[in-house]
């Protein structure tokens, strides 16, 4: 009977997958109404699945082909020492010998820190070079044309903003000098433009994530609900449910309104 059940589930896997997806979506979104047990259950299921999947992938893609098989099937016995080094991480759970785990963490932190020279050179030096923009548009000047005024203005604006912002970040000395303090103050203003750009981009990015989820409900789940009819009717039903919810909320205004 169990085998039959598994076979039935397997044969209808596509439909079950979509229905499970919709169930998970509504379970998580239920927290927007208020904290509830349904949400907590699916949150724990998510943690379990993510942890289990991470372990499976690490074994399947890395440890089995690059450590286990060379050691056991290809006779490269010395890979045992990799396991010895890897086991040093777990001394973190020993109160007496926790320092042994710090050897491994130190190893990886040192490795990352050692790459900083290269990273600094490869990332920042080209930026320094690109910051040295010519004030005059050379190609226009070579052709005997009046230098592009807008280009020059743009470069001046660039220099002004760059220098003002860098002066703002100089915390090593006090901004007593009037020129320096004015530049730092201007830098703070210019930084607002950058933060505004980041804020606008963040809103766009986060909205897209919700749009993606809604797209799944609209384009994959809704046709499963009513395959014969236009799936717009599903949304009429959903809209009616939302209106009902709003009416209920109006009658109970104190429901978790923080």
């Amino acid at each position: 009977m169990l085998n039959q059940a598994i076979k039935t589930i397997s044969d209808n896997a596509t439909g079950i997958t979509i229905w499970c997806g919709a169930l998970c979506t509504f379970a998580i979104y239920s927290v927007l109404y208020k904290e509830n047990k349904f949400y907590r259950l699916f949150e724990h299921i998510f943690i379990g699945l993510a942890a289990g999947y991470g372990v499976y992938m690490t074994w399947s893609i890395v440890l089995r082909p690059k450590w286990w098989e060379p050691m056991v099937h290809n006779g490269q016995w010395y890979w045992v020492f990799a396991a010895v080094l890897g086991s040093m991480f777990y001394f973190m759970y020993s109160k007496r010998h926790v320092w042994i785990s710090r050897i491994m963490f130190g190893l990886f932190m040192g490795l990352a820190a050692g790459g900083m020279f290269r990273e600094f050179y490869e990332l920042i030096f080209p930026q320094l070079g690109a910051s040295m923009k010519p004030i005059l548009n050379q190609s226009a000047a070579d052709n005997g044309v009046i230098p592009n005024v807008f280009y020059t203005l743009q470069v001046c604006v660039f220099y002004a903003i760059l220098i003002a912002c860098m002066v703002y970040f100089f915390f090593s000395f006090e901004h007593r000098n009037r020129v320096v303090s004015s530049a730092a103050s201007a830098g703070r203003w210019f930084l607002m433009i950058g933060f505004g750009a980041i804020f606008g981009a963040t809103v766009m990015g986060r909205m897209t994530l919700f749009i993606g989820r809604f797209n799944f409900l609209a384009q994959e789940w809704a046709p499963q609900v009513s395959p014969g009819l236009s799936h717009y009717w599903v949304w009429v039903a959903v809209a009616a449910g939302i209106v009902l919810l709003a009416v209920i909320l109006k009658r109970h205004p104190n429901s978790s309104n923080e």
Partner: peptide
């Protein structure tokens, strides 16, 4: 993702990135 795009413009300007798709 769009969140990271605003910080990439210096790299586009210096040529360290050849192009970008913003979200």
């Amino acid at each position: 993702t769009a969140v990271m795009a605003a910080e990439a413009y210096p790299y586009l300007d210096s040529g360290q990135m050849a192009g970008m798709l913003n979200g």
